[in-house]
Each structure stands twice: as C-alpha cells, then as structure tokens.
Design a protein around this nucleic acid. Sequence first.
RNA 1: CGGGGUAUAGCGCAGCCUGGUAGCGCAUCUGCUUUGGGAGCAGAGGGUCGUUGGUUCGAAUCCAGCUACCCCGACCA
Length: 577
Amino acid sequence: MRISQYLLATVKETPADAEIISHKLMIRAGLVRKLASGLYNWLPLGLKVLNNIEKIVREEMNKSGAMEVLMPIVQHAELWHESDRWEQMGEELLRFKDRHSRDFCLGPTHEEVITDLVRGEYTSYKQLPAIFYQIQTKFRDERRPRFGVMRAREFIMKDAYSFHINEESLQNTYEQMYQTYYNIFQRLGLNFRSVVADSGSIGGNTSHEFHVLADSGEDEIVFSTKGDYAANIELAVGNLAIKNSSEARKDSEIVNTGSEHSVEAVAGLLNIGVYKIIKTLIVHGEDEEGNISDELIALLLRGDQELNEIKAQKLQGVASPLKFASDELITKKIGCGVGCLGPSNLKLRKIADHSVENLFNFTCGANQPGKHITNMNWSEGCAYDEVADIRKVQENDYSLDGGGILSVKRGIEVGHIFQLGKKYSDALNATVLDSGGKAVTMLMGCYGIGVSRLVAASIEQNHDQKGIVWPENIAPFQLIIVQIDAHKSRQVADLSDSTYEKCIEMGIEVLMDDRDKKTSPGVKFAESELIGIPHRLVISSRSLAEDAVEYTHRQHGEKQKVKTNDLIQFLVKLLSS
RNA sequence: CGGGGUAUAGCGCAGCCUGGUAGCGCAUCUGCUUUGGGAGCAGAGGGUCGUUGGUUCGAAUCCAGCUACCCCGACCA
C-alpha cells in the first residue's frame, strides 16, 4: 500500500479523553475512531491488526477440532425466556421490538442460540463431543464503557461452546480448550497468566480466566511464588501471619476517641497498630427468596484487611449483590453510627473473618458515639456467631498450597473458560440418546476470547516512547519503505518503486511512504514509529551515495546499511519466515 | 445507577466571572522557500458557540429544562 493512497489517520496531540496508553496510541496511530460512547469505527490500519489476531485465533481453534459457525447478532426473546435470562440479565441486555412488537435483543453472548441449534441437529451420543465457535460482534450495554476498545459496548468476541455426553468428556474438552487458549496467547506474544475464576452470572462451576499482565488492567489477580496457585482476587484465598499471639491478655477499657472514625485515625490516636483493631462492617441480609431485607449483619475484619465483597455476598443470608447499610439505619438499630461499631454486646448476626479469629488485646468500637474499647478479648459478651473467609487477599500473604508467598498483580481479562454443566441444556431441553436409547441432557462448556480487546492489550505490552511496537505476527504491515527526496532524486524514486513492487510480488505486507515533498522526513520517521511497523527501510540520496539503503528494526532500534545489490536477498532473509 | 465535570472550526483549547466585533494553536487549501527527526514566510477557506426555552434593547456569556460525552465507585470478553 502506498501512503499517498491510504488513510493514515495519525494525530500529533494526545486525545483528551483517553486515559490509558493503548487507548491514546490507538487514536494517535489512527487504528480506531469513536462513533459514540463504547462504539468504535475500525480504520484500515486497525482492522488489519484485528484481522491478524482473528486469523491466529481461528487457526488455533480449527486445530483444536472446533467447527466455525456464525450466529445472528439479533436474537428473539423467547429463547431468553426459556433460559430465564430475559429478566435476569438486567440493563446490560439491549432489548427492542420489531415491527410486529415482538421482543428482541442484541446478543451479548450466545449460549441460548447455540443450545437451540444443537438440540435441533444432534440426536445421538455418537455425535459428541462437539465444539462450535464463532468470531462475531457482541453488544453489551455496559454501565460505563471506558478505555477505548478495552471496554466497549460493541466488541468482537470469539465465543465457543462444547457439548458432551458425560463429565469426563467435558473435562477433556475443557483441558483441550485451556491448552488452545494457552497456545493462542503464546503465539500473540503476550505476557499472560491463567487464574482460577469466579464463574459469575453465566453459571457453572469450574472456570479459568486468562489475563494479560498490565498495570492498567481492571482486574487483580493473585499468584503464588511457588507452586501453581493462581486466582482472581475475587475468590483468592491465602493465610495471614498471626501477629500478636504471644502477648499476655490484658483487661479491657473504654476510651474516648472523639470524632475519630477511620481505623487509621483511631490507631493513630491510641498509638497502636492498625492490625490490632477490629473493623465492623454492617450489611443488609437477604430473605429465603433472595430479596434484600432490613435484617442487618455485622462483618468483622482485622483493621489492616479489606473486605472481599464477592466472597461476602456468597454467604447464606447475606444480600447479593452486597449492600452496605446506611448510616441512618445503623444509628437507628444500634444507637451509634459507623465508626464506633464493634462486636461487643452487638445484637446482630456476626460473621468473623479468619483474620480476627486469633486476635488478642484488640481494639474495637464500643457501639457508643465517640467511644472504643481497647485490650478487648473474645468472651461471652464479645463473640462472633461464625467464621468465614471474607477477606481480600493481600500481597505477601502465605499461599495455602506449595508454601509460597502470594503476589498481587493487575491484569486485563482476555479469555474466560467455563464448565457450564447442564444450566442451559436443562433449561432448553437439549438432549441426545445414550447407548441405552435413553434421552440424556447434554453437558456444556463455553469459552470466550475478547478479540478486539486483545488489540488494546497487546499495545499495553508492546509500546515505547515513540509509539506502538507491534509483534511481527499481528503487525498491520511487515515493512515500511520511507523514501526521502524522491522529487529530487530519480534514483531514490526508482529504487523505492522497484523495491516496493518486488515486495508485493514476494507477498510481503509492505507500506510505502511515497508522500511528496510537503511531508518532511521527520514526519515520516515519527509516523513510521508511531504506527509500529516492525521493519523500516529508508531510501534516500544520502545512503545511495554509498550505494546502500538504511534498515532499522522498530523494536531494538538497531540500524544497518544494506548494499542495494544485496537488498532483495536481505528482505527475503528478513521476512520469509 | 450514585457522585463530579465538560460541550465554542476537522482536532486541542481560550473567551463566559463583569452581556455589545467569533478568537488562538494544530490540521486543510494556494504560492514561494526548506528537505535526515512532527519546517518557515505570505495568503485563503471553515463555526445557527450541543439543544430547547427564559431574562434583556441585545446572550457563546446570566437562568432553567433536555441531550451527549468524560472522570471516580458497584458489573464483565
């Protein structure tokens, strides 16, 4: 492609509404343009990258034996009523009516559609297992789209679904998909980790997420320095060192803490460690039908620890999603507001985190305005009803297995695999006959990759001061030829033209900067670096004086002179792999 | 959905407080010069100031509603 004929939509200024580096660079390099919140146009350069990533995903999926299909993005409500998700999904599901006033939605995922398809086509256990996948646009009406294509409302996803006659088969395919995902992210040259994950609203039990490591990631992932333990922080578990077990027990004392409410402020006032304070959080309960109630529940945590809301809301009787009680309600029921609460003489259901189980001589609120109790110990008047793990794991906790230390890093979720079990096949009555001629409900797995998100994730890991540094297998072009002074030098014009033609003949993805004298060399260099083309040839009268052209590698910046006679040989060697 | 903010030329912004002539940088177009790191000079084009209404002799500016977008928190590839 010749740049003079191409939409190279680079911008010099950093866009004001971009926060993270990949978003800034995707706008600056002219890969995407925003249409509306969470909706993006893919420009020619960006689409080439997206297509390259799709190609790798497709190759590896095909290699795994999965069959590619394409399902509609518009789905009718009936299917969603069958799975009971029409109501469950909430605002994320964009619903609308057709001309006959029938309910439809834009597909945020395709469990219902694929299950409907398979139940119509599959009749025998002999046809299983079967894996289907598609690479297609999804729409999720996100509350807050952000970070460009990283969290867009409309995005490209590779979603796959597998069907099985038994658990063993599901497990096998799950492991095979795990390996396929591993291969895909490996080929994309990403620094990634797989972690045990919460399956969330999609249902099912076993689940793993694949995260690209990046400081801008929205997720926190935890892994052990020894052994294989790795998990999303939402469900990560770890052990804390017990800090004051050897201390002799003292007598408790009520102290005035005035207007100090936060754990840090109280610790400072009393000159004690934050870890010796018990933090009391009050949340709403839930009745047997799952409706939020006004019954309040106290959650007890060590002062230096944070609540893991996901863990807490999974507990029996705790409102899900978790809802903190308002200050007014707490004051009404307990007699003092947030900031002076404690387990002593508190007439609520009290759930203690493991971190407070072994505390001695601790400080907690006295349930009276402006007062705390110091040197408290667990006793009849100050007790908890049950112990649970409701703590957010922290850096340097001890791993439960392997004896390692836990490390917390930020990640971008680019893949998620689930064992769904019979959730959808049961709801939609997707059965096949087993060897005994009996109808059995199929087991399912589902496997997603955020393809458009991968473009952004890759940039997060592959950039420098000057711009994007594409890995070769996803770069929009392999080679950029920059011609300088072509209007002055016949030789420059001829050599760059002939080299360009030769590259096309050889099947090399080549971009030629043939813009005229109005585009200065500086602009050409800066833009070639911004858009991150791996290899660059500069053809100018300066180097031609030595009968050579100049080659630069984008990643390590290493330059070399290549004699014009050796040029084609050089390119063949460089780019034929 | 709660809290905060923004809306003026293709992009980035000033002007608003204190009402009266539509402004800057980049980009674009023309000409000349320049040519190895986002060029210089001269000229030109381009805006119903998000939208609806109100106040006023007069509104980009003051007031109200609406809409869109962005940021911070709970959900997700």
